[in-house]
Design a binder for these strands. Structure first.
Lengths: 144, 144
DNA sequence: CCCCTTATTGAGACTTTGTCTTGACTAACC
DNA sequence: GGTTAGTCAAGACAAAGTCTCAATAAGGGG
């Protein structure tokens, strides 16, 4: 539990500490930026927003947080990667094809259907990924 | 209908002709290679197999066929792209995390679940992607 | 069958995206 | 404060894909 508005799992700085990583200024700035970000971002966008943080540092930090499970990698239909601050438990994503915004969602019925669909592959099934592509409200409105 | 062993939709050369594309030697060789290929491939692998076909030509042809719907782009969990000759109708994929082999599959119950899951996004849902990751029989066996 | 038009080609420059190396710096522990 | 290992920024490097351009060849019209 925490006194922040965000649940503890979304406190990226805390996650870094938990990982035993040093709390450096670049990491603090990156963590704050990602938490504040609306929707999903690419490492490139983070770099643009923090010009005096090295590109390599941005990639390393994103990788760290992704491996820790608090950042989630998705992709646009063309494969362009997007990251978003996310729930650590299993879930899937609604991805806006216009602006790249990513919304997490969770659907037990869908999970069950996926598990059933993979029954043929038996024990050997190791994971799955479901992405729904849509046009978010704002993009629908903006397009007229 | 055709006299070939493959259904007409898998005849890549015919697809290229149908598109109004010229039947050049590089395209013929690429089409034959892809039809013969077991599992999924990357442009890089095609280039390695046909060293005297230009890289740009490989990428251009793969793009053409993907847009025509006879080649299907998937990705490994890390995002590495894989292409496979595929049914033109809607379906999903089983991707082997060890060798990258891709098996198409089709599951009406899963489709229904996906559609239901996206009901919240209403008319604005424009597509979806489901990938099941597994370890294929051969890779399971090889790993002991 | 040949010519002409124009799509397509291969080579390599370029772009984008991400990783690695290096010497400097600094957080954390004493 | 001093020490030291982890981290930093910069830029070289690597991987993956696109673009440009002069040369070639497909395919239709004569």
């Amino acid at each position: 539990m925490s006194t922040h508005a965000h649940p503890a799992t979304l406190d990226l700085a805390a996650t870094l500490e938990r990982l035993g990583a040093r709390m450096t200024a670049p990491r603090r700035r990156l963590a704050a930026l990602m938490e504040r970000w609306t929707g999903a971002f690419s490492p490139e966008e983070l770099t643009a927003a923090l010009p005096d943080v090295g590109r390599a540092t941005v990639y390393r930090t994103v990788k760290l947080l992704t491996e820790a499970g608090v950042l989630c990698r998705t992709a646009l239909p063309d494969g362009t990667p997007r990251y978003s601050v996310d729930q650590p438990h299993h879930h899937h994503h609604l991805v806006c094809v216009a602006c790249g915004r990513v919304e997490p969602f969770d659907d037990p019925a869908l999970e069950r259907a996926v598990r059933d669909a993979g029954a043929g592959a038996g024990e050997r099934l190791v994971g799955h990924r479901v992405e729904l592509y849509y046009r978010c409200e704002r993009c629908t409105r903006d397009a007229g």
